[in-house]
């Protein structure tokens, strides 16, 4: 017995529902449009998660192949973009063979904690300028420093900073709670900042390899 069907009045389908329906029945033109629209973003996110170019392309291709296969299962409760990035994230996790579970303990937590005195104020305040490094140096060191973090954290960071996804969407894609997402971002940002600070300290004296 479907109660909701009994109590809802007939209404016109929204554009979102029409699109979801077209995706479900694998309307070729619709699938093509979705692929063409989101492929650049998906590729960029795969790179952002730390995959090398060839690997990123492979994972992107697998993501869309899977999308075309499982399109009938798209329920339309979330945006097709969220659906796609969810597939991408699982493909990345597979490629890395790393399960997405966030470690309970991460060494970066201790590193950050050691910068504060017991009363909660900085005992070792952040060094350097507000920009951390000059633009070109920042560019040069950034990918090194980002690669110190696991793919799950990098994906979260990428979706937030590069694609500008909402907390809600990122949580759906990664299958985590908002608190958990906060921990991931906190760890990645601190680890990367600490790394850049080290590079900057080194750059002051000699050329860093």
């Amino acid at each position: 017995m479907n109660l909701s069907a009994r109590f809802t009045t007939p209404r016109l389908a929204t554009p979102h529902e029409i699109a979801a329906e077209a995706i479900r029945r694998r309307d070729p033109a619709t699938l093509r449009r979705v692929t063409e629209k989101y492929l650049p973003q998906v590729l960029r996110a795969a790179r952002g998660a730390g995959l090398v170019a060839a690997q990123a392309e492979e994972v992107t291709q697998e993501t869309f192949t899977t999308f075309l296969e499982i399109a009938p299962r798209f329920e339309g409760r979330s945006h097709v973009r969220t659906f796609l990035f969810g597939i991408l994230y699982r493909k990345i996790a597979e490629a890395r063979r790393g399960r997405a579970r966030e470690r309970r303990h991460d060494p970066i937590d201790d590193v950050v904690e050691a910068r504060f005195s017991p009363n909660g104020s900085w005992s070792r305040p952040p060094e350097g300028s507000d920009q951390l490094l000059h633009t070109h140096e920042l560019r040069r060191f950034l990918s090194d420093c980002l690669s110190e973090s696991p793919a799950s954290q990098r994906t979260a960071f990428h979706l937030r900073e590069v694609e500008g996804f909402s907390t809600d969407e990122i949580c759906k894609i990664l299958g985590v709670t908002a608190t958990h997402l906060g921990v991931m971002l906190y760890r990645l940002r601190n680890r990367t900042r600490e790394c850049l600070e080290r590079k900057q300290r080194g750059a002051g004296h000699a050329d860093v390899p």
Binding site: P126, D130, L132, T135, L138, S143, F157, E161, L196
Partner: peptide
């Protein structure tokens, strides 16, 4: 610094 970090990642 965290803001600069996010912006640089986006641009790259």
């Amino acid at each position: 610094q965290l803001r600069a970090l996010g912006e640089a990642a986006g641009q790259a």
